[in-house]
């Protein structure tokens, strides 16, 4: 072990505190702004970090201007649907690619790799005209569909299944289990970690997505939170307290989720980066 001198330790903590201020400080500043009442001057100099009279008024205030809770519900619907479709679609396809032998397997695998190379930004216009032709534009269904099964998730699941030892399935084969039984009872429970990664990143991706919902949703009744916040920002930006309350509503659920499930977030970065 190399020893760390006292000076180095102090310097490291000092630097870490500085970076903490830079990375987390802005969120705390926003939280503080969201609790400042209408009578409190938010432009004071020097800037006041603690609200003088903390109030939840901005949270009800923002709900009077845009239906922020309905938007949150829309985002939740989209995100949860995205989780379910990705878990089902990616684990099924990943299992077939990793464990089943059939003609055309390589080609099927290649289709997912090619899909990974096409940036979403370069197909949004075609997706938009397609949704219009299907009369789905301006619906939450249209928001969900293009990301319903992510190519990266399929490849992550394929790798997870491919890394399982064959022996555990061989025993089941001898016992006469068919392919569906093996998939559901043996393979799936063995890749819970990767399933958690896929679930979390599907949730986060859908909850945070902006470009596609912005393009496909035109009626403010169907907005998701990100599109709703953009609208709020464009129309009421003269009141930063309300915008602050809206952003806190949008970010709080993810921070809670992250606090509870950190290791899966970190694992997802590692696995996604290597494949992506």
């Amino acid at each position: 072990m190399t020893r760390i001198s006292g000076w180095e330790k102090a310097l490291r903590y000092l630097l870490m505190l500085a970076v903490l201020g830079i990375t987390v400080g802005p969120f705390l500043w926003q939280l503080s702004t969201s609790f400042k009442g209408a009578s409190e001057d938010i432009y004071t100099y020097p800037p006041g970090f603690l609200p003088e009279h903390p109030t939840l008024g901005n949270y009800s205030g923002v709900a009077d201007i845009i239906p922020v809770w309905d938007y949150a519900l829309n985002s939740l619907k989209v995100a949860l649907t995205n989780v379910v479709t990705n878990l089902v679609g990616a684990s099924l396809a990943g299992y077939a690619l990793a464990r089943l032998r059939f003609r055309g397997r390589r080609l099927a695998g290649l289709a997912f790799v090619v899909a990974l190379l096409v940036p979403l930004e370069s197909v949004v216009i075609a997706q938009f005209t397609m949704m219009r032709d299907l009369h789905l534009n301006n619906t939450l269904t249209a928001v969900v569909l293009p990301g319903a099964v992510g190519a990266l998730n399929v490849l992550l699941m394929r790798n997870a299944f491919a890394n399982l030892p064959y022996e555990i399935e061989e025993a089941a084969v001898i016992d006469g289990a068919n392919v569906w039984q093996r998939f559901l009872r043996i393979a799936l429970p063995s890749v819970r970690g990767t399933l958690a990664v896929v679930a979390i990143f599907s949730f986060m991706g859908a909850w945070d997505d902006f470009l596609w919902p912005l393009i496909v949703l035109s009626d403010s009744d169907h907005f998701t939170l990100t599109v709703g916040l953009n609208y709020l920002h464009g129309t009421f930006q003269q009141n930063p307290r309300l915008v602050a309350a809206g952003t806190i509503v949008a970010v709080a659920p993810l921070i809670v989720l992250f606090a509870c499930l950190q290791r899966y977030f970190f694992r997802g970065v590692g696995e996604g980066a290597v494949k992506g």
């Binding site: 089902v88 679609g89 099924l92 077939a96 289709a111 075609a126 397609m130 569909l145 399929v154």
Partner: peptide, 26 residues
């Protein structure tokens, strides 16, 4: 242990989405 059709049953949802909303739009 599996019939010829079942691998494609596994792949239909994933391939369907990728083909319809990614490769075809491209």
């Amino acid at each position: 242990t599996h019939r010829a059709a079942s691998p494609w049953l596994f792949l239909i949802p994933g391939l369907g989405v990728i083909a319809a909303f990614n490769l075809y739009p491209f």
